[in-house]
Design a protein around this nucleic acid. Structure first.
Ligand SMILES: NC(=O)c1ccc[n+]([C@@H]2O[C@H](COP(=O)([O-])OP(=O)(O)OC[C@H]3O[C@@H](n4cnc5c(N)ncnc54)[C@H](O)[C@@H]3O)[C@@H](O)[C@H]2O)c1
Ligand SMILES: NC(=O)c1ccc[n+]([C@@H]2O[C@H](COP(=O)([O-])OP(=O)(O)OC[C@H]3O[C@@H](n4cnc5c(N)ncnc54)[C@H](O)[C@@H]3O)[C@@H](O)[C@H]2O)c1
Lengths: 210, 210
DNA sequence: GGCGGCTTGTGAAAACCTTCACAAGAAACC
DNA sequence: GGTTTCTTGTGAAGGTTTTCACAAGCCGCC
């Protein structure tokens, strides 16, 4: 199969997020209308979609409900995904209470922590299990994706445990580089790193750029 | 000035994060040693750095402390930045208690909310002010960067208020596209969108890719 | 049925980014 | 001093992504 770039996938997600927001209001949408609010161009939208097939109708545009279905299928969202949160601290607790996950097709089915005060309790209806039971519980509950919200120094070890337990993808909030364990997919979100992207833009704008 | 790509800036931040982790242990580092743990190549590292000058010594490598200083200067991190968090809910509260921000040069100097229960209190030594006082307080405290942690439907309006108050950059956690108000820099972190990048990889791997 | 206005799908061109490959400089050793 | 080993800095090549531009198809109207 053709190689799809990471930026193209990101844009497809953006298109989908946008389409879901207008579903019901509008039956058809043009590449132009889809492009503008997602900060893209109409040619880019058409190219992105054409990587997977022809979904539009010339002279009319794309059917909103059909395009939603198509994008969901492309992104693997025609079904729900089972997620575990590892580390129920400040950030982890926020994640357990985040409705935006289930709204977008991700069910947090269990959480893990080392803290014996937390283990055995539940938060928002989600059991907090001991990190020692990770392998067993992950298998029992069919966890497919892990979200890491532990201190950075624990992250590498937890990725290993998740990999061993058969989890196929990890999203980490720990600001540390995680080795890529093929065939597992690992991605890191680093808040400070994003802020550094902003300060770079501010600083280079203040000095001489065009 | 030459245009620097977003991915190059991201890699520079990664190099810096890595270097800070080894500062003290090692005086010199080669492009190869810097590349491997950040998932890059030595040629890429040298190219990235050469966009800004010549910082290495042939046959030896780069001086770790000097390279840290240089990267901090490039990214605008030779000084600290004043940040405001808008929306002190589950996520916002976690952010107010996040040490990773000040460790990386970002000081949360104030927070804002609409909730009258929260306004007037403080969390981790950070005052929570009324959103109605945003413009005044932002100016008084010299806020330069805003972090948005309100419900998505409030985000657009808050970006406008921040722009009016003279804030130059915004990082938003609200999963919604925010119009780009030149010269303000806006960036969005969408957790579900990152997860969708993972499900795409999982799904297309399961079907026929190479 | 034919015409004009619109919008897609897509090769080709342009822009951009990464990798290659090697000259040039630094140090260590004999 | 000469030779070997190492590593940077950088043009040029190679690859990928974005933009351009237009034929092909759809719709409504006369
Ligand atoms: N707090 C934030 O707003 C924020 C924002 C961005 C990124 N992060 C990152 O997210 C991670 C968590 O941050 P936090 O502020 O929630 O920290 P925290 O200290 O509040 O929580 C960490 C939790 O992880 C648990 N833990 C520690 N070791 C563990 C292990 N081996 N297995 C399972 N659980 C373990 C602890 O018991 C604790 O409950 C950190 O890496 C941090 O850098 C936090
Ligand atoms: N909770 C999470 O883990 C998480 C993760 C990723 C993204 N997000 C996103 O972050 C945002 C906040 O999520 P949350 O879970 O903390 O929500 P929350 O409901 O817990 O908190 C929202 C806070 O914003 C305040 N608020 C509402 N309108 C406001 C306004 N106009 N001005 C100032 N404050 C206002 C509310 O009083 C509340 O305190 C949402 O957009 C959500 O999608 C949350």
């Amino acid at each position: 199969m053709k190689k799809i770039s990471e930026s193209a996938v990101r844009r497809l997600s953006l298109y989908l997020r946008l389409l879901r927001g207008i579903a019901g209001d509008q039956e058809l949408i043009s590449s132009q209308e889809l492009a503008e609010p997602s900060g893209s161009t109409s040619a880019q939208v058409r190219k992105d979609l054409s990587l997977f097939g022809s979904f539009g109708q010339r002279g009319k545009g794309y059917s909103v409900p059909e395009l939603i279905d198509t994008l969901e299928r492309i992104l693997g969202l025609e079904r729900r995904w089972r997620v575990a949160v590892v580390g129920v601290g400040k950030l982890g607790s926020a994640l357990l209470g985040y409705r935006g996950l289930s709204e977008r097709g991700f069910d947090v089915v269990v959480a893990f922590d080392v803290d014996t005060e937390k283990v055995g309790t539940e938060l928002n209806g989600i059991d907090i299990c001991s990190i020692d039971s990770l392998s067993r519980v992950v298998r029992e509950r069919g966890v497919e994706i892990g979200i890491i919200a532990t201190p950075p120094e624990e992250a590498e070890g937890i990725v290993s445990r998740l990999a061993d337990a058969g989890v196929s993808a990890v999203l980490s909030f720990a600001p540390i580089e995680l080795g890529n364990r093929d065939p597992m997919v690992v991605r890191t979100m680093d808040l400070a790193l994003e802020l550094e992207g902003l300060t770079f833009a501010l600083t280079s704008a203040r000095n001489g750029d065009s």
